[in-house]
Write a protein that binds this DNA or RNA. Structure first.
Lengths: 208, 208
DNA sequence: ATCGGATTAGAAAATTTTTTCTAATCCTGT
DNA sequence: ACAGGATTAGAAAAAATTTTCTAATCCGAT
């Protein structure tokens, strides 16, 4: 691992633990086993380090979305949630301090907003596909799906921040998934409930 | 208004606009039309200012909850949401940077966590009461209400942060209320839908 | 082996921000 | 009016943090 990468990894670790704004160059240098002067050699300033991390996050985020551009059966949704959760764990600092980061970097905000829009659209497609194949009942009022798609995005994105404030322990994957599924469950048809139960009982993880 | 109060008001204004961590004593002093030295006379340090604001927030928050310890008909829920939204607007900085504040003040975290628990319980009672009076259908799976109560709290609390990141404009009351109601709508019985429609059509605000 | 650019640590300087100090002014009670 | 504490502004000092500079070391190509 190059020094540049080591610095980024160290910064990520400190950011995740203490929050971006509370991390000093010295902390990052210590974590990386390098000197502050060396940090300066690789990055013009602290902002560049944050930006470097965000670029990595963004790349992986887009990759994730591409990978799950697949048939949104319940199984697939569940797997997508796991991948998203894992990604959010890794780049925790960003999801916990999104506003801080976007305030400091307007260009990050612009790009992230575009990404959000894509994600909300993906949720909307998931809702529509699953309604059409009869596992979810039609929306109870016009525009309901649009609102729900937003809610699904919000829940799946802000879950970590929520739980960090509410409890003291790190949130678990199962609670996360349950939180998102809870938004969908009330719309399940009888068929939907069956498929959901079946999914819960076949832990596909074992086959990987 | 005493100088102390002026300083708090000025700090609140700057915190709301720029985020707590980005506000300097100089900014607060300028906003208050006072000197930095004067700030130091009234508050031993910056932390004391933040804490002063949190104390006010907490008092009003508890007052709010007490006030709405009433029969949770749809009308009342809607009114509660308006009061909560307004309160969150006023103390925006806290709801946008909760993690930052609680990281800096462990004692705030402890108190806020207790308050959250009370709020979640209140939502649970609302769910149970409205199920018992036949406007909401029974929970589709055991433990569903518990999860939903949490979700209702999360949605009603993190809405502002969500929207600040997602869009650039300040979020509106109507969208906020809709977001929360959307969580309840799928559980409505026929009677529930009727009551909801009726509520939407009678803008009680006019009678205040 | 050695030249030369790349990398590194650590110190020094600069910058930013908070805290302390001082003297002036205000305001209240007599 | 005036004594004396409360309040205030502004400067000075201190503290915290980032940025720049310098000299030493490393490492690959010749």
């Amino acid at each position: 691992m190059s020094t540049k990468e080591k610095i980024l990894a160290a910064a990520l670790k400190r950011f995740n633990a203490d929050g971006m704004v509370n991390v000093r160059l010295q902390h990052i240098a210590d974590e990386a086993g390098k000197s502050v002067g060396n940090l300066a050699y690789h990055f013009p300033n602290k902002q560049a380090i944050v930006l470097g991390l965000y670029k990595k996050l963004e790349t992986e985020q887009i990759e994730l979305l591409r990978e799950f551009r697949i048939v949104p059966l319940f199984d697939n949704i569940d797997r997508l949630l796991e991948a998203v959760f894992q990604h959010q764990q890794i780049y925790r600092f960003f999801y916990l301090d999104t506003l801080e980061v976007t305030r400091a970097f307007p260009e990050v905000q612009a790009e992230y907003q575009k990404y959000i829009e894509t994600e909300v659209q993906q949720w909307l497609q998931i809702l529509e596909f699953n309604t059409s194949r009869g596992v979810m009942s039609p929306e109870p009022r016009p525009g309901f799906h649009t609102g729900l798609a937003l809610q699904l995005w919000a829940t799946s994105t802000h879950y970590m921040a929520q739980e960090m404030v509410r409890s003291t322990v790190l949130p678990g994957l199962e609670a996360y998934k349950a939180g998102v599924w809870n938004l969908l469950i009330p719309l399940f048809t009888k068929l939907g409930h069956q498929e959901y139960e079946q999914m819960l009982q076949s832990p596909y993880d074992l086959f990987y």
